[in-house]
Design a protein around this nucleic acid. Structure first.
Lengths: 233, 233
DNA sequence: GACTCCCTAGAGTATATACTCTAATAATAC
DNA sequence: GTATTATTAGAGTATATACTCTAGGGAGTC
């Protein structure tokens, strides 16, 4: 593999593991056992590395969210979109963590990310539209669908932050893809009230598969009777 | 005012304006025209300053989210909760921005924040329960209410990040409290499908007041026909 | 005046971090 | 083989940042 690609790969790996803020260019070079000079031969600066990684991320999600216009959507499609988006989120999970700071430091990235968000919101909205056409959910006004789509986006992009800050018992307890995908449960929760009678039960069954599991550690930690919120069932 | 309090006040101000990451203890001291030594006489380190600010934030939100158990909830109560929570979010807006990093650097804060989240989720859930009792929304199963509450929390705590990353046209364009409160529109969107016939119209009218306004600049920027998502109505 | 206690100044330090510069080596073209 | 280009090493640098240390001022008390 070319050094340039190795740098991108290692950077992504380290960013995901430790957070962009905690990974220096020297760390990346050391991790690859190359010199800092070598790294800076391939990339002008750290922002450039991050930008390249973003382009990959963008490409991946755009690929996933390509919506077929020649046929109706199915439940399988919907689940594929959800699974795929969370897979993408997982692979580039450092990105949404320090998003604000990353965008502050790079105009290009800021602009591109904004357009990326718009495309995603558009895609989500289109998916809902086609789901209504397919009779999976009740039709919604444009206005409601847009607002709903935005809420879906908010839940998707911030589910991980919630897990890392509010959920994980200790910083050592690292996140797993399985836990991340419990975000699908939350997204489907948004859809529940709109499901048609014909599909309601089927979707609820699918949703159940993603229901968050109580980590033993956490349950034991909380005083009896004080368990609250999403895990209190 | 005591120097200690001045430090807390200035820190909060600077953190909110520039982000915790971009504000050093030296900046804070300089901003107050005091010496670094003086600052460190009052606080052992930066984490301690942040922790103290968190305690204030926590106290404020706990105060806002105190739920009266001796009477039913009204629509006014609900709007008060929403307004208050977003006011709190605004006053301490630096906090959720760098949350993950802040928690990484302070065990105490991590633990406290987790309990704080649990209390908030509990409060949100209780509010929904009482709103159902008051006939504002249809009753929900415990499971659905918990999942809903968590979605409300996700939307509330991440609305600002969305505004700053995806919405604002330029980094120079600073956020206003009014824009932040458009998050209330998003939260009410979550409630829409559960509203009872008796209250539906009244809530929709309230919700309308928070509907995001299209900033002129933004509209002009986007190619015609490509406007998407939440602002495309 | 002298003592004490609280507060403050400001120079200084250890460490980190993004990035540069020069020289050398490997790969390729002719 | 030789010239050229692409790649790499590694020491080095400028700047920033969290934090320390010592000296001393001011106010109250006896």
């Amino acid at each position: 593999m070319k050094t340039r690609d190795k740098i991108l790969l290692s950077s992504l790996e380290l960013f995901n593991e430790r957070g962009e803020r905690n990974v220096t260019t020297n760390h990346i070079a050391a991790h690859l056992a190359i010199s800092p000079g070598n790294l800076y031969y391939h990339f002008r600066n750290k922002s450039d590395i991050i930008y390249e990684i973003f382009l990959e991320y963008e490409k991946l999600v755009d690929y996933y969210l390509d919506i077929p216009e020649d046929r109706p959507l199915t439940l399988d499609d919907m689940m594929f979109y959800l699974e795929s988006v969370f897979d993408g989120l997982w692979s580039y999970r450092f990105f949404h963590r320090d998003l604000e700071h990353l965008l502050d430091g790079d105009r290009r990235l800021r602009q591109d990310y904004r357009e990326f968000t718009d495309r995603c919101l558009d895609a989500i909205s289109r998916i809902f539209e086609k789901m209504a056409e397919a009779g999976i959910i009740e039709p919604q006004s444009d206005e409601l669908r847009s607002a709903m789509s935005l809420n879906v986006w908010l839940v998707i992009t911030n589910w991980m932050a919630f897990l890392k800050t509010a959920h994980a018992s200790e910083e050592s307890a690292n996140l797993t893809l399985t836990e991340l995908k419990q975000g699908i449960y939350q997204v489907l929760t948004l859809e529940v009230p709109y499901l048609t009678a014909a599909y309601r039960e089927r979707v609820l069954v699918l949703r159940e598969k993603y229901r968050p599991q109580l980590p033993e550690a956490r349950e034991a930690e909380l005083p009896v009777g004080k368990t609250v919120g999403w895990n209190a069932i």
